[in-house]
Amino acid sequence: MIQRRTLLTATAATLAMPAIARAQAGKSFKIGAAVYGLKAEFMQLWVGAIKAHPAVRSGQAAITVFDGQYDALTQSNQFDSMITQRFDAIIFVPIDAQAGADAVRKAKAANILVVGSNTRVVGNELTSFIGSDDVKAGMMEADAVVKAMGGKGNVVVIEGPIGQSAEIDRGRGNREVLAANPGVKVLEHKTANWSRAEAQSLMENWLTAHPGQIGGVIGQNDEMALGALQAIKAAGMDPKKIPLAGIDGVSDAILAVKAGEMVSILQDANGQAQGALDIALRRLAGEGYKPMSEVWNEYASQMPWGGGTATEYSVPWTPVTAGNADALLAKRQKG
């Protein structure tokens, strides 16, 4: 009997705890994270990061993740059900900028605020957007390759799926740098649809078509750069002699950077996901809300919080180097 009573008191106490915390913050906010798809590592990291946000851990925010399955219609339907279920806010990573804008309008009409993260929608209906500038990343990777080539020679460009916003923007960044370096000629450019296997075959074929002529490889993401790396190795060439760059900082790419085989530029999923949640919570909880994620300290100078009401936050890109590779991987293991 005594035992049971202590158990009951203990249970009551633990139950009361989050209730108090909730009372202090007002309530537990119901937040939907509508992401374009969960089939690649980057979005997995993004989802892992948002679930690890201090506010989610403490129960101040309840996150429901919706997998958009790379389909604009699926995402639109998910918005309908979030509106029906009266979510407090939606964090939105759209598959398509045009179709996404329509979904945002629907939510706004239902008085649900929408914070964009990672990929953009057209128009200005978003409460705020946090992401990284793909044009900049395209410039950074092209710059790294061009520099390593000494400003002359031939490059090949492995592109993302034609027409996708990341492909368009990264491509624009690539071209801007290449235009400024007339000594570097683009030998070939073609899509490998973000796929490692596809890029590997493509690079094998290019190496055959242009023996000894390819001096550098610009991959618009890491997966494709890794495919090209395998092709270079399989052809018996030394990858250290052919500058190769990718974007995103996926785990395999970080390992390849560590081995000195490529350059990668890390897109910070953690910053984009946790930052978005802080921005949404600030709007919901009011002026007194203090951002909880570490990212605001990490990027204090490049991405200031500024009260949390800016309409746009740009998460900086971090070049992966042999020096920070281990730290980046360790951080990932923890998440």
Partner: peptide, 15 residues
């Protein structure tokens, strides 16, 4: 064979 060729087993392989 595909995992060994691409050096990683990828969940989105074979789409």
């Amino acid at each position: 064979v595909l995992a060994a060729r691409t050096t990683s087993a990828l969940p989105q392989a074979g789409l």
